[in-house]
Design a protein around this nucleic acid. Sequence first.
DNA 1: ATAGATGCAAACGATTTGCAGTCTG
DNA 2: CAGACTGCAAATCGTTTGCATCTAT
Lengths: 136, 136
Amino acid sequence: MSDTQRRRHTRYRQQVRELLSGSEEFLSAQTVHTMLRSQGLPIGLTTVYRNLQALTKDGTVDALRTSTGEQIFRHCSPVQHHHLMCRHCSRAVEVTGPALDQWATALAEVHGFTDINHSVEIFGTCGSCADTDHQI
Amino acid sequence: MSDTQRRRHTRYRQQVRELLSGSEEFLSAQTVHTMLRSQGLPIGLTTVYRNLQALTKDGTVDALRTSTGEQIFRHCSPVQHHHLMCRHCSRAVEVTGPALDQWATALAEVHGFTDINHSVEIFGTCGSCADTDHQI
DNA sequence: ATAGATGCAAACGATTTGCAGTCTG
DNA sequence: CAGACTGCAAATCGTTTGCATCTAT
């Protein structure tokens, strides 16, 4: 749960890393697996999971949880940004909040916390879905 | 997925609601189940899940996900507050951020979103865990 | 009566692990 | 060569569902 052991340089880990580097989206392990397979890479789902885990542990990628409990990953971005997503169509808008980030950091420090990391998820009904008169 | 159907007034749902009303903590379904059983209530785990789901749908309780993907519930509080938690010992501090809440609401509206709901989770290493020289 | 509520067992979906074979440093 | 890495199948774990049985209204 805490070892950042020596890693070998393998083709698959490299591919997983590259795929994430080339996307600004948060992707699920299953999606990463499907994408790599469709690129003709015969990688196994287990390997994808293990590599995403390793990359997360090494701080190469960030991991998050969707509201359904599914894990999603994205390459670490220098700028922290958050998400505004529609609970009906899952449309997502990336937003940043410098003030918010500072607040979170300061707040955590005041409470004696270090090595801070935070995430903000805003859920709502987007315009088109509201129009469609979706039942909640 | 969207029906707030007519609910009957039953002993079990009442107990689940009361248990949550009496706690400021976020509790998992399993915990709620265990607590009710230890009170001598012969309720089934399935029923706990179904009631927590119903209460969440009716807006009586709020549901969240832990970093392990587990769902946790708490009675809705009039004031929105967020969490600062230690990634090692899971110690949590409740914090409020009026400015943040306004920012989130305004931001969502600007993007045409309605029926907004947001959550902020801040993770870090708390003082005691940092002292203990925990391996990351 | 009649539709919602409940319990149990089986089903599920995402993630993890055991194990044997493979490959990197 | 030793220790990482990989794949497959089986195991977990939290949560959901099918179904027959109760029970509130």
